[in-house]
C-alpha cells in the first residue's frame, strides 16, 4: 500500500515532468487538479492516464464516469489501482 503510494507519486512527478518536486512533496490527499494543490491541467490528466495504463495495464476506456474522482488525489488513485489490478 505504502509502496504503491510512493510508486504513484513517482509516476506523477516523472511522467508529467514536474520540476522542483520530489515524490515525497505530494501529500496523499492533496488535490491534484487544483491551483490550491498540484495545479495539474487537462493535458496532465490525459498524460497521467497514459502513464497509468502503461504501468498497471489499467483500462481507462471503460464506461466508468467517475474517472475525475479517481484522479483527484494520490489516495484515490491508489484505491483505483488496487480496485482494478
Amino acid at each position: 500500500m505504502e509502496n504503491l503510494k510512493n510508486e504513484i507519486k513517482k509516476l506523477i512527478v516523472e511522467s508529467l515532468e514536474l520540476e522542483e518536486m520530489n515524490p515525497d512533496d505530494i501529500g496523499d490527499d492533496v488535490p491534484l487538479f487544483s491551483e490550491d494543490g498540484l495545479g495539474l491541467d487537462s493535458i496532465d490528466a490525459l498524460e497521467l492516464g497514459i502513464a497509468l495504463r502503461k504501468k498497471y495495464q489499467l483500462g481507462l476506456d471503460s464506461e466508468d464516469s467517475s474517472v475525475r474522482e479517481h484522479f483527484s488525489s494520490v489516495n484515490n488513485l491508489v484505491a483505483f489501482v488496487l480496485g482494478r489490478v
Binding site: S42, I43, A45, L46, G49, L60, D61, S62, E63, D64, S65, V67, R68
Partner: peptide
C-alpha cells in the same frame, strides 16, 4: 466528454456518431 471512458459511453448510446475534438485529445 472529458476522458475516453465518457466518450465511449456517449458514442455507444447513439447508432452513429460524429466526433468533434481537438488535436490535444
Amino acid at each position: 466528454c472529458s476522458h475516453p471512458g465518457a466518450l465511449r459511453e456517449r458514442m455507444s448510446m447513439f447508432r452513429d456518431a460524429a466526433l468533434v475534438a481537438t488535436p490535444a485529445q
